[in-house]
Design a protein around this nucleic acid. Structure first.
Lengths: 211, 211
DNA sequence: AATATTATTGGTCGGTCGGTCAATTCATTA
DNA sequence: TAATGAATTGACCGACCGACCAATAATATT
């Protein structure tokens, strides 16, 4: 009946992808609806199927594009420094800032973890698994290097040290809501910053009082 | 047309609740279906509505019953010890063991966080919020006490220290899948134990090499 | 034994889901 | 300007969703 003028193929595709990302971020894969995506993108449901094969293919394309951002992050973290303490600070800050600036990435990851393994097209999880594997492998290798150079304590397994690193960073952005419930007054940004300083201090030096 | 003999009211209710917990755990609230629950419980869909007002009410009842377990856990964590190092070990171990033994609780929490704030009946979130608030408040108070008694370093804000504590514990059980992808061979139980020892060590003493 | 109450069923409702298709409109080109 | 191809639409499909209801079978009460 009608055709919106001026939009190129890529513009429309991008609009659909942006709308879909919001919808998936808000509702997860199961909860998201093509109607909702169409509404956000101000086009009709049919057009989504013209540009993308299926809902699952759309979800897959979003996941892949989001994981591409990880490459830059890894390069930042893996950059080298002379001083181990300063290295830790830089790594924590880089990862933390990334999560802080990409809340939609974090929410998509959250949904992906929850829905992991439930896909009817298992090959779709391969890209995600490959990305995670690379991140974990690189992180473990890095910790091992630092141990061998005598900058990190050598009595702990590298992979569990790196797991602790990731936990401290990733979990905050979902837990902070619970902490905002008590003793309000502090802005989110301020709380973020103070949490970051705290985990750097704990990770570097521990929490026990020194005599 | 027919009625299954022998089942008391409570038995049927319990069967539905158990089936629903599995279904919600696997698919989240949006992804779960009453048909799936009925199938698991080996009854019909209609019977669910006879015993429970709605899908949402069923979900709510499961959440509440699961959060009741938290009370015992808190009492364990809040038990007192003379030595701070031993106290940390006991607290980490108690919380860790709880999550280890209640995987369905963890998965339900995961879905709840993802779907939080999206309920059409906001009052349903109140119980969850209240539980989380109590846990966080008690934890913060405990850290503050230990600081004042000189057992924990006093230069870090209690709430962020406690947030770090929770992050190290909760995040592992969702991240460990990614770590299982690399250097296999270690059983899940063994990896769990080694991770626990690692975070206790890190939290207590930090990761920097001591000269 | 007759009656009332409770537990359970099959069937059905309106609504939404993801997906398909033919028709239509715009942009390009001949 | 006419023809062609790509982009977009509305209408529609079968499947499933949560919910409801009348009928019925099992149990409890009298």
């Amino acid at each position: 009946m009608a055709r919106k003028p001026g939009n190129t193929r890529e513009e429309t595709r991008a609009a659909i992808l942006a709308a879909a990302e919001k919808e998936f971020e808000a509702n997860g894969f199961a909860g998201a609806s093509l109607s909702g995506i169409a509404e956000r993108a101000k086009i009709t449901k049919s057009l989504i199927h013209y540009h993308f094969k299926s809902k699952e293919a759309l979800w897959q394309e979003i996941k892949e594009s989001r994981f591409a951002d990880y490459a830059d992050l890894q390069r930042q973290i893996l950059a080298e420094y002379d001083d181990a303490r300063e290295f830790l600070r830089q790594s924590f800050t880089a990862y933390f800032t990334f999560l802080q600036r990409n809340p939609s990435f974090l929410r998509l990851m959250w949904w992906m973890q929850a829905e992991h393994g439930r896909s009817q097209h298992p090959q779709h999880d391969l890209v995600v698994s490959a990305s995670m594997r690379t991140l974990v492998e690189d992180g473990i290798r890095l910790v091992r290097d630092l141990q061998q150079r005598g900058q990190l304590r050598g009595d702990l397994a590298p992979r569990f040290m790196f797991a602790a690193f990731l936990s401290l960073l990733r979990h905050w952005f979902v837990a902070r809501r619970d902490f905002a419930l008590v003793e309000g007054g502090e802005s989110t940004a301020a709380a973020d910053q103070r949490y970051l300083e705290t985990i750097i201090a704990i990770f570097s030096d521990g929490v026990l009082a020194r005599p």
